[in-house]
Design a protein around this nucleic acid. Structure first.
Lengths: 131, 131
DNA sequence: TAACTGTACTATCATTCGTAATACACTTAA
DNA sequence: TTAAGTGTATTACGAATGATAGTACAGTTA
């Protein structure tokens, strides 16, 4: 289901959070869909249940999923919590990444094309995840 | 010169690397300009010289600066090393961030406007760095 | 009741970050 | 030549974090 890099300096639970967010954003997981339980997921990925729980807790705090004791964890139908601070941070991150991309030689036209792809909803399915 | 967040989970040397890259990209530091020595920088920021050296070493390995023993560290006139893998990674990172931005409600038009700003070279000076 | 869910807590180990203290090689100016 | 400035390398230590392991409790459902 996931490809985790144990050797990466990036914590496993963070990799999990990013993967799940990506799958939710690209509607691989749809609203109110039940996610694998912490124990099942831990067994599948051969990592500790506590690590899964840490990821789920983070995803819930960000509003991407919700958990019900005794039932399970589910994709939030309302999407992530949004506030001005979050939007500001995203714009700032975007500006920095765009500056670096331009600096690396990626053209503005390429980027605009990517934006249009994502806007049309055909960007997500094409994400090459071998990084 | 810099504003570092000691409390941040992000390592100081990584914050330094990002800051320096940003300043080089936005031409606050120009080609062949000499950077503060590791000891001076360490004293200014009241952190350990080894931490500065770690950041400089990383910047040099990425091709943003070059160091000469006994003389100092300088901004690379040729820019960072570029290869296909780096470009691919950047495009992938861009795609992910763009997806998330659109998902958060930022419009494609806003993003395209940002791209044009950066392309024209008026994006860097306006970066709001209070994150 | 039994088996599944999420949640919480303590303990332990490995890794990383940052610091500290040296030491060495090189360059430059006095 | 000498002194003071550069970058670089090494070892050691403490603190923080990530991941694991084990156990326990609370709620849901067949």
């Amino acid at each position: 289901m996931f490809e985790l890099d144990i050797r990466s300096r990036k914590p496993i639970y963070e990799q999990l959070v990013d993967k799940m967010k990506e799958l939710i954003i690209n509607e691989v997981f749809i609203a109110d869909e039940q996610l694998p339980s912490v124990r099942i997921m831990a067994k599948d990925l051969t990592i500790n249940p506590n690590t899964i729980q840490k990821a789920y807790r983070e995803l819930e705090s960000q509003g991407y999923i919700y958990s019900i004791k005794g039932k399970g964890s589910f994709v939030s139908p309302t999407g992530p919590k949004q506030n001005d601070e979050k939007i500001m941070k995203m714009k700032n991150d975007l500006l920095k990444l765009l500056s670096e991309a331009i600096y690396l030689g990626i053209t503005a036209e390429e980027i605009v094309f990517m934006v249009r792809e994502v806007e049309a909803g055909i960007g997500g399915e094409q994400i090459d995840d071998q990084i």
